[in-house]
Design a protein around this nucleic acid. Structure first.
Lengths: 216, 216
DNA sequence: TGCGCCAAAATTGGCACCAATTTACAGATG
DNA sequence: CATCTGTAAATTGGTGCCAATTTTGGCGCA
């Protein structure tokens, strides 16, 4: 058996309204590290855990499997999937590809107030370096990138990148373990803001590529 | 009622093995125009049509809704969704963005035999211009682009583009209505093959962009 | 003591039934 | 005659239950 058992731990027994919320909640818990990669997601446990019915759980698990966050083996169940080295490399490559190509559109369509909001989010991330928790930092980083991509004027880009990023193992897996790295991320955020302000597409593209590839 | 009723027509009563095949089959039938955009997908009809149970149908419909091929209204059901003008523009923009960025990688990683296979597929599409049906042309075109993108060495790229292309209304919607346009597509295919053979990234990028944007 | 086999327990997968909501139709009414 | 209304049909959404498969624990045997 190469699959590890799930780490139960004490999770807040929050319950969800719709099935979409349920899926998001499970996804959040997975990325927060509540369920270790390789651990089996037992349906009855989830059913009790999220205070919902079993078909609901099965639907949410199927959706997560479609998103490639978990995997399904017939008559065995669903387990948390962690992308291996090659897949992570390909995902980061694709993410950098899209975001860099979006740089020109961001420069073109980004308006003044949007730029200020972006600056605000970069500052918010900066403030959370010392005070915030890992998940707070992660959320602030995600919000920054979402805002940046939304300035491209093409909502399909941000949606696609969001899906992509969810498949890349992040915070708890440990590329942000050092504060030095988080600080470097923040610096690069401000580089992007400056590039957008100066309407310098090439500088923005470079900053984005360095920022994404720093993980590898 | 702004949603049209579904066009029943006579569909081959093929049945599927797994639930994934069922979803693909429904998706194929939708893109083949069996169900008109806006028409409601009634679960009992689908159940009889595809010779399967109702939970299976519901699972397949949920997956298609996740893929944005259809939409779901609570207590009303699922209906075929056709992307509007803005969304199509954004999807084509994103598709061109990714495929153009992939051009450099295709030039870099594309090997000789892969290039020959690509040539073969371009020829296959060419041969189907006069003899083949619309769906055959569509499949040959899809196979060509899939092969081209697989030569980038990054399977995530082709997977993402496949998902994207499924969301763009295609053949029956009528951008291939004229034979002239199909011929032009074939010419551009061979331009891409030539660019790959010459290892000319810029030429490949231009050909790809023109090819994708010809639809708009 | 280690290996293989067998039975019991647990978990997943699928199906059938029933409730809730919406839609369509018929009838009454102004 | 148009419109509103109430009832019936149809469709969807959810829950529970049971079969099929896998895992686990225990027993016998070399």
């Amino acid at each position: 058996m190469h699959k590890k058992e799930q780490s139960v731990e004490t999770l807040k027994p929050a319950h969800s309204d719709t099935e979409a919320d349920l899926m998001d909640q499970i996804a959040t818990d997975i990325q927060a590290g509540a369920y270790a990669p390789g651990s089996w997601l037992k349906q009855i446990e989830l059913q009790q855990r999220y205070k919902t019915s079993r078909p609901m759980i099965r639907l949410a698990l199927d959706r997560l499997a479609q998103k490639q966050l978990i995997r399904h083996e017939l008559n065995r169940g669903y387990y948390v999937y962690e992308a291996d080295g090659d897949e992570v490399r390909d995902l980061l490559d694709l993410r950098a590809m899209i975001e860099c190509a979006a740089a020109a559109r961001i420069i073109r369509h980004g308006t003044g107030p949007e730029c200020e909001l972006l600056q605000k989010m970069a500052q918010n991330f900066e403030d959370l370096i010392d005070t915030g928790s890992i998940v707070q930092q992660h959320e602030a980083n995600q919000a920054f990138h979402h805002q940046l991509l939304s300035m491209s004027g093409n909502p399909q880009i941000s949606a696609t990148i969001d899906d992509l990023r969810h498949r890349i193992p992040s915070a708890p897996a440990g590329q942000w373990k050092t504060r030095q790295r988080v600080k470097q991320s923040s610096i690069e955020h401000f580089e992007m803001v400056t590039a957008v302000r100066n309407r310098d597409a090439k500088a923005l593209e470079d900053a984005i590529r360095r920022h994404i590839m720093q993980v590898a």
